[in-house]
């Protein structure tokens, strides 16, 4: 390696007791294995998917993949009402889930930011939904939502509300899924906002107190503006995850009744693993992926601003 020799010559004093090649290349030795693993597991699939998306490839038939250019994309974007519906539902689900969770999450953070007995214990309980196996949660909710024997309808009846069909009706299924997602992910918003609250300066609050500001004023004119960065980050992270929601929808409804809860993720899954139409599924992946990368770039922008 002539290159290493030149480095050694140009910086002879930097590392006196370094003798081996291994030591000079340490930064690569440390980082390369993980990076190579990530590249193989992430970049290769992406490249392969792009290639597949340009082909007609039915895994169920013996025919070889046939190059068809952008036909898959053309069909997806202009002539596939099922995809259009799925996209709409994905956006609707993401928007509803994120906004409800933001409001509840900020409220919970404000509550848990107060001092009370056993706060640590309660906070540990509060984050349990996030770590619980989604399949298990989904199953319990399915059992609770049984139209005639379910406990949820019983509870509605107790408080004097009419029973709901939950996941069994086209009209309520999306709202119900939003509810389950909210049950599981509101704590995440709470955690992020709590971290924001913990790092807040004292001075503005002191000043407001001296000036005689009311609690409501303090909240809207000081707390909320200071929390803005945390809330933006929380919203972005939640949006990126909500858009990918799969487990609970797959287990609870598999996209039904009809296509009433079929999001892009579900449609993609069905195209690939029920119809084995790999070319078309790959085209959906590419579009879905692009959507999320736009969000990712946005997130990184926000993060970078926060880092500086």
């Amino acid at each position: 390696m002539p290159q290493t020799a030149s480095i050694a010559h140009s910086k002879p004093a930097e590392r006196r007791n370094v003798s081996s090649w291994l030591e000079r290349q340490a930064r690569f030795v440390f980082i390369a294995p993980a990076l190579i693993a990530l590249l193989l597991l992430v970049i290769f699939p992406i490249a392969y998917t792009i290639w597949m998306s340009l082909h007609n490839w039915q895994l169920s038939s013996v025919a070889q993949p046939r190059f068809i250019g952008l036909d898959n994309f053309w069909k997806l974007l202009t002539n596939d009402s099922r995809f259009l519906g799925a996209t709409g539902r994905t956006l609707l689900f993401t928007l509803m889930a994120t906004s409800v969770q933001l409001v509840l999450g900020v409220a919970m953070a404000l509550l848990f930011n107060r001092q009370f007995l056993g706060r640590g214990f309660w906070r540990a309980l509060a984050i349990l939904p996030m770590v619980t196996t989604p399949v298990a949660i989904a199953l319990i909710f399915v059992m609770m939502m049984h139209p005639t024997l379910g406990v949820l309808n019983y509870l509605l009846q107790v408080v004097g509300l009419p029973p709901s069909l939950w996941i069994y009706s086209e009209r309520t299924v999306m709202l119900t899924l939003v509810m389950v997602d909210t049950w599981q992910w509101t704590p995440l918003i709470m955690l992020i906002v709590l971290a924001g609250l913990a790092s807040m300066p004292d001075e503005p609050f002191e000043a407001a107190r001296i000036d005689g500001a009311s609690r409501v004023q303090v909240f809207f004119y000081i707390t909320l503006p200071l929390l803005r960065p945390s809330i933006v980050v929380a919203a972005l992270f939640r949006i990126i995850d909500a858009i990918k929601t799969f487990d609970i929808i797959f287990v609870m409804t598999s996209g039904g009744p009809g296509y009433a809860s079929e999001t892009i993720n579900l449609y993609l899954f069905n195209t690939a693993f029920s119809y084995f139409d790999m070319g078309y599924a790959s085209a959906i992946v590419v579009i879905f992926f692009t959507m999320i990368m736009v969000l990712a770039v946005l997130t990184i922008r926000v993060r970078r601003v926060e880092w500086q």
Binding site: P45, Y48, M52, L268, M278, V285, F289, A296
Partner: peptide, 21 residues
């Protein structure tokens, strides 16, 4: 940041190529 992006990519987009492979 690359690592962060790897976390953001939807898992399902790996699944199709992996399944075939």
């Amino acid at each position: 940041l690359v690592v962060l992006v790897a976390r953001i990519i939807p898992a399902i987009s790996f699944l199709v190529p992996w399944f075939i492979l």
